[in-house]
Design a protein around this nucleic acid. Sequence first.
DNA 1: AGCGCTAATTGAATCGGTTCAACGAAATTG
DNA 2: CAATTTCGTTGAACCGATTCAATTAGCGCT
Lengths: 356, 356
Amino acid sequence: MPVTKLERAARLADVAKAAGVSQGTVSNVFNRPQVVREEVREHVREVARQIGYRGPDPKGRLLRAGKVNAIGVATFEPLSYFFEDPFARTLMQGISEACDKAGAGLSLVSAQNPERLTWNVESALVDGFVLLCIEEGDRLVELTRARQLPFVALALGKPDPTISAVGSDDFAGAKLAAEHICGLGHRNIAVLALEFVDDRFGWIGPRELEGAVYSTSRDRLLGYFEVLEAHGVDTSKVPVWETLNDMATTAAGLEAVFAKGERPTALLCMSDRVALSAIEWLQARGLRVPDDVSVIGYDGIPEGETSRPKLTTVSQPIVEIGRRAVEIILDGADEVRRETLPVELIVRDSTAPSRA
Amino acid sequence: MPVTKLERAARLADVAKAAGVSQGTVSNVFNRPQVVREEVREHVREVARQIGYRGPDPKGRLLRAGKVNAIGVATFEPLSYFFEDPFARTLMQGISEACDKAGAGLSLVSAQNPERLTWNVESALVDGFVLLCIEEGDRLVELTRARQLPFVALALGKPDPTISAVGSDDFAGAKLAAEHICGLGHRNIAVLALEFVDDRFGWIGPRELEGAVYSTSRDRLLGYFEVLEAHGVDTSKVPVWETLNDMATTAAGLEAVFAKGERPTALLCMSDRVALSAIEWLQARGLRVPDDVSVIGYDGIPEGETSRPKLTTVSQPIVEIGRRAVEIILDGADEVRRETLPVELIVRDSTAPSRA
DNA sequence: AGCGCTAATTGAATCGGTTCAACGAAATTG
DNA sequence: CAATTTCGTTGAACCGATTCAATTAGCGCT
């Protein structure tokens, strides 16, 4: 009897019935063709073709298999952040390389939109999460915990020992930067920092340092200060301005710093983005970098290599951090893993000896 | 009686049993809390907490719901391509914006690895695909067809009317570029092209043009030629070099072009990447852009705005293309949709009047 | 008390596969 | 020839939820 097409999309069971074999056999035809006799195999294939069955639906397979074979990357920023921000992009490179190698998929998740029907941390079909804790790291971790899936936090502000995390040594990195600047003879220095607490910017004093939510910023500042003091700088007089890692708040900070009496001859920036913004601001004001002002960044994003002047910076192994995070998740071991990768001073053209 | 924890992860059914209610009620507690009496709701919540149930598993929900609420972006390149290539990145911006707005997820899929057990076009859990047909567009389309999911092709080389696609008018865009160059008085022109057939580079003659696999390259070249001829240029003498859209093959092409007798005063490049590479090569050889050689690109990637000199180019609405592709997929209408978005000439600093 | 109405809950079917113990038939062995 | 092994196939359980028709409970009204 001729096989007729069905109304709804064909299923495995339909093929089985039409071909007069069991579901298990049809399943095998598509998943382990070797175990089924050639004659049967071809027959099933032919029937499948006739009723328009194109192979097992991943939705069904998933439920049984349990494993999605994909990892999710979550952040509180909008999805476009993954493709715009240089740091995120570099990180994603490492993450995507590791996924490619493991044959795992990559799903991007934005936790920003708390509404219903959105693909979020609660509903994403993934085997584990890499958390990009740029902002609201705590909430992100909390959301993810509820999913009971393995996860690794990156750029996590807090050194919580119950959370797997990959990062680099902020304290050591900051010291590297400060050593370089002091070694060039600079003593009149300003700091352009990242956030100490959420959604605020402006001057940072001892009180703000004390109440810092983000240990990244705190550790880096402490690193700067330790070295500066060792070189006889009175850190209580060093202007520290908290930015939102963008042009606007960086410019505001520079306005404020340069409005003060003594102008700095060097800028310690806690990110390359801030450093690049600062250079742009300085150049627009007719100040030469590094002749008039030395600028050092932090992170080591690719843009620092092509800027003018090329950016001196402390480089984190961003790609490597992403790669490790994925490896840890795919490892499957469920104990807490914390890794700190080494940082490196990269001297390029945006810093020069002090002329003072 | 006290509720005890289970060995395996708790399921909805376990909660139902432990709380002495039906599965349906527990499902409602988590999905439509309004419909269940407060007393029951709280009781179920409490029991769920005790046995360690954190809410419905998306895997199960998926099977029933049928909709994943995510779209996939597939290409033959490795995953890292999405974060490295400027064109892809800009496209992804549009795609991710549209996904964000629709509350849909975003999964990246590389079709490169044909092995088993990999997250690929056949197994990705998505509701539809955006196909980035940079290379091997045909195979990609074929693979995707088998999934019987809606898909939209971008940058598809062939004008296949059975496939939904979003693109821009290559012929018109190329004419724009050529008009600009001719209008500046240039008559001695070379073309740096993209691929006409897979995995080859070098000179393009009438034969290669004839046998072009990629209509994008062919249409652009035809656009260039039509305008050049209208300005009295003998196009059979115009050197056309096919690149692989990278520095190496662009440099090789320039070596070849400049080794020939008459040096061009203007370069028509089929991508901004090639144009930027060309500028770099020219500058390294001591040739000034645009004084000695004018260079015009194609695409309109962000890098063209910050390069030195800033790049004159034909801009495709890349972000918009990505956005439309997602909208078409989420629309759900299953007829074939083909859209051609307008291109625009953007005159910046890499082109100048011919001094001849 | 009897009636109609609404709101809350149940039970079973369903989604689309994979897996595995068990089984029958054919091939191999002692 | 009986015993064992191998191979291919079956049938049913299972994965973890959602959905909806049917049922029950509770309430107000005459």
